[in-house]
Structure formats: C-alpha cells, structure tokens
Amino acid sequence: MATTTVPPSPSAKLNRIGLEMTHYKGNKTTLCAGCGHNAISERIIEACYEMGVEPHRVAKLSGIGCSSKSPAYFLNSAYGVNAVHGRMPSVATGAMLANRHLIAMGVSGDGDTASIGVGQFVHLMRRNLPIIYIIEDNGCYGLTKGQFSATADLGSKLKTGVINDLPPIDTCALAIQLGATYVARSFSGDKRQLLALIKGAIAHHGTSMLDVISPCVTFNDHEGSTKSYSYVKDHDSPVADVNFVPFFDDITVDYDPGTTKDITLHDGSHVLLRKVNVDYDPTDKGAALHMLTESHDKGEILTGLFYVAPEKPTFIDQLNILDEPLATLPESKVRPPKEVLDQVMQSLM
C-alpha cells in the first residue's frame, strides 16, 4: 500500500450501500437563491443518502414549473422525466407499470398539481400507486411570474396587491379522502421534520403525498402572503413531532412508549410521533380530515404526518403483475406461440 494516501474528506462518509453523499447530488440549481424548493431538494438528497436508496432505481418525475425543474438538482445518476404541465402522474403511472422495481420520486408545484393537474392528481391518489409525490407549494405560479394558484389562501395578497378571493384546495385533505396512504404537510424551512417525513415516504409502500410549503422569495414572500417564510413560521402548528427510524436501525433510540406513537411501515421502518398531541391517531381517516378542517378554520398551518395506511394494497399489487419488470420480459414471455394464433383463427372460421 502506498504511504501517501489522500486522507478521506469528511464528507466522504459512505452510506449503507457504500455511496457518498455526492452520489446523490444533482446539477447546480438555477432557481432563485432562497427559494424554498432548493431546501426541499437538499432534504431529498439527504433522505436518499441516509436511507441508502440505489440511485439507478429512482425515477425522478415532474411536470412544469420552478418546482418541477428541481429533479435536475438532485440524484444526477438517476433517471428522470420532466413531463408536460400537470401530467406527471400519468407518466409516473406508466413508468411504474413498466418496471415495478423503480422508486418513483415525483416533484410537482401547487399550480402543476392543484390547477392544471388536479385531474391526474386525483386519480393518482385514488390508485395508491407506489410513488413519493411532493408538492412544492408556494401558493403561486413561480415560473410564470407569480399569479395565484389554487392553494393560495382566501385573502392572501399578491405582490401587486391583488387579493385572492377563492378558498384554497387542501391537497392533503383531498389526498386522504381519495385514498393516498401516507399524507403529510411540512415546511421547506423545517429541516428535521421534512427529512423524517421524506424518509418515511421512501419506506412507505403506496402513494406518499407530501405538501411542502415552500416560499417563493421572488413573488410570494411578502407581507400579506400566507405562504411566506415569516407567516408559516408564526402559524406552523405541528400535529406531533415526527421521527423516523429506518428498518436497518435499532428502534430503541429515543423511544418513550408513554408519549410516543409508533407506526411500522411496510419495509419494517418506524415513524415515531412524539409528544405534542399523543392522542392523535394517524390511521383514522375521519379524524385526520376533521383535524385538517378544524385547524384550517383556526387559521393554523398544521404540519406533520396526518394519515398513514401501511398495509393497503397498491395499484401494482392489484394488477397482479409479474414480479420481473414488464419492460424487459423476453419474447418468449410476451409473444404467444403459433398454436395460439392457429386456435384463434380456427375459432373465427
């Protein structure tokens, strides 16, 4: 062995599958400095790194918008599709049908999801496709320069002074009602909570829908906006402190059964919900919806994991598809033999 080896840099720590954090990075962001979306990309990188996600299995998917650009800024060695505006869910669905072993990581915006894309969003939630679906929610259309989106709160103000006079669509309530099986809201500035929620989403088997309030510093981070950094900091009300313990770690860390609710996810990981509201049961759909409506009336921005149903079969399970990816099945499995054609022809004579 050579004596003059370069000392490993502190960042060269390897994860569970032997990759460095740099393996999970993307291209340099072209979004505005301070844009909430960038912070979310960073959490995605950390979550994938810490969970030991294999980058080649990740299908990064998005629609159109500043938010939908962000898949270029994480996991460079993964595969990606930047689809058309509001239609990423269908592309994700097709990709997962073709290869059920992919990890679909979808990133959308509030415009992309709740306006032009609400039709596909609704059906995606309903199918419980295995996907991590993150809405980078800034209450406006960043890329087309700040118009209101359908998640903008009633009375919220645009920089130009225009006031929003329509009620918002609550994407979390919608997702829960429609059948998504892991539904949470977070804030791009809450590193700890967001990281735990993304990790939980990666471990979850089914549709994970994360609405992440992500201020647009250029068009929607001023007084009068309800999606600004300061407004969210003041009104954020976590349902419970979320902690995540991956299946490959020991569950004993920090575990206090008296004040902690433990939810075991499909792959054996745990989401631990602590303290704030220990009575809250995130497996109760009705309670989740009730809580969201109540907090909305109080003007709070509730964050945390609202609903989880780890055992519900996914769309892929329901279709009874072969375990091997359909994409790479050999001809012998996909082209029936000549006898089949002969038999069909005979029946038509």
Binding site: V84, R87, G94, A95, M96, N99, Q120, H123, A327
Partner: peptide, 23 residues
C-alpha cells in the same frame, strides 16, 4: 398491465411513461 385511464391525456401519458421505462 392494462389500465383504463381517466382521460386520453392520461392514457397517452401512461403509455409514454411506460415506453420511457422500456415497456
């Protein structure tokens, strides 16, 4: 896999997603 989609936009979006992933 056969899926009755929610509309033709989704039907083709799915077909293209699948085509991209190799189906």
């Amino acid at each position: 896999a056969i899926v009755q989609a929610e509309d033709e936009l989704a039907a083709l979006g799915m077909a293209l997603g699948a085509g991209w992933a190799g189906a």
